[in-house]
């Protein structure tokens, strides 16, 4: 599991760090935090679709409204998305839950 998290860190640095920051705190009211995010706590299964397809429209995180489009990362494989989620869920004092490629693959069938 730690290997997945370490691979996730590298993927995070290559794909996510510009907007969400090395400390996972995001940027102002432009890009939401991933560290201590109540959205991630409430909707952990939403991560796979958001990472793969990006997101448009308003989103509430920790009582603040964000409304910047997030670009997609369609080139990421299911396995890579798994590592990313495992990193995010275990970094910065986050929940510490793990997902698997099977769960991610299943979840990706239900993206809207």
């Amino acid at each position: 599991m730690d290997r997945s998290v370490s691979q996730g860190l590298i993927l995070y640095q290559n794909n996510c760090i510009q907007c969400h920051g090395e400390d996972g705190k995001g940027l102002g009211a432009l890009y939401p935090p991933l560290a201590g995010s109540d959205y991630i706590d409430k909707y952990p299964d939403s991560l796979a679709c958001i990472i793969k397809w990006g997101r448009r429209g308003k989103i509430m995180v920790n009582g603040l409204e964000y409304d910047q489009p997030m670009p997609s990362n369609e080139k990421l494989l299911d396995e890579e998305i798994t590592h990313l989620i495992n990193y995010i869920q275990n970094a910065w004092g986050n929940a510490g839950v793990y997902t698997s490629p099977e769960q991610v693959e299943k979840g990706l069938n239900y993206c809207n």
Partner: peptide, 9 residues
């Protein structure tokens, strides 16, 4: 305007 406000500085 919205962007500059959201930047938070």
């Amino acid at each position: 305007k919205d962007y500059s406000q959201r930047l938070g500085a």
